[in-house]
Design a protein around this nucleic acid. Sequence first.
DNA 1: GTCTATATAATGATAGAC
DNA 2: GTCTATCATTATATAGAC
Lengths: 186, 186
Amino acid sequence: MPAPLLTRPEILGRLMELFREKGFDGASLADIAKSTGLGKSSLYHHFPKGKEEIALEVLGHLETQLEEALFQPMRSAAPPRKKLDRMLDTIDRFYEGGKKACLLERLCASVDARRFRRPLGRAFDTWIDAVEALGVECGLARKVARQRAEDLVVRIEGALVVCAGTGNTAVFTRAIRDLRQSVLAP
Amino acid sequence: MPAPLLTRPEILGRLMELFREKGFDGASLADIAKSTGLGKSSLYHHFPKGKEEIALEVLGHLETQLEEALFQPMRSAAPPRKKLDRMLDTIDRFYEGGKKACLLERLCASVDARRFRRPLGRAFDTWIDAVEALGVECGLARKVARQRAEDLVVRIEGALVVCAGTGNTAVFTRAIRDLRQSVLAP
DNA sequence: GTCTATATAATGATAGAC
DNA sequence: GTCTATCATTATATAGAC
């Protein structure tokens, strides 16, 4: 009875890396096995429903990570501007300055996107909600705060696409910089 | 000697639809054959180097379309604000109000993105250049015009991603509306 | 320029031993 | 919980007839 080689969070972390790099359609079970160090059969032990279940679990893992690293800190008593700065720092690190792709975007662009629709929509909404709350905390009208929050997510995702297409990460860096000013502006 | 069933632009048009819907990794040769009504062997007659060549040709077809429908009109003598409006109308139609994906984004998100890097970068740059020219025409400093142009492309691409993830096309509609005001603002 | 038939490799997924 | 071996299916790509 061999012991597990990796903990479940470790496995999911590696798989998130893989899907961010190759996308869902582009990552084969062979890739998945290699990136985790597990054989295919072991994978089906952990994820009996196969590749689709793997992606859903990885999405869930991301939601947990986002909650801890991105959303929890937003509910502290710190000044909203500080909290926005912290969020943008975390985002900048997570995407490595525009060099790494977004899991949400990669799954949106997959053939089975409809299967992932619910968790994808929830992840985007949670993210937007967190930024909206900052705006409201800053005294912005709810509607304005909402639009600014949507705009933040839109610009992050768009900048990642344009960076991937042009190879010019300056676009992402500038997006982050601009958002520090614009999101909570009066 | 059977006659060709479709002209080359017709073939490329259908394939563009297919890749926008399924992505490069998600569209199989069987899908490609079905969408064009051609057998696999016929496909290899038209595109001897296979699937990768198909995607490159489709990208070229898009560049031609963009040149005619998007960039040419920008070089007319019309007032810049009118021309921006026209571009945003064309974009809105092309993406069907946020319901259809962007070919550039789908190819950026493919496993072989590096193969498409050059034409992808060129397409993005040409697009940004065209918008930048409008800004300069409007009296904006070149640097400002450039940033606004990048921002337009970023927000379009990002809005498409968020729409695909949330199913809420309002985000795209609002992005288009906002851009009408912000891109050429003094 | 299209077709049918096929080659060959890779795909997602299972069976059963340990 | 992992492994090796294998399954049926699908993938991209060719050969050669018409």
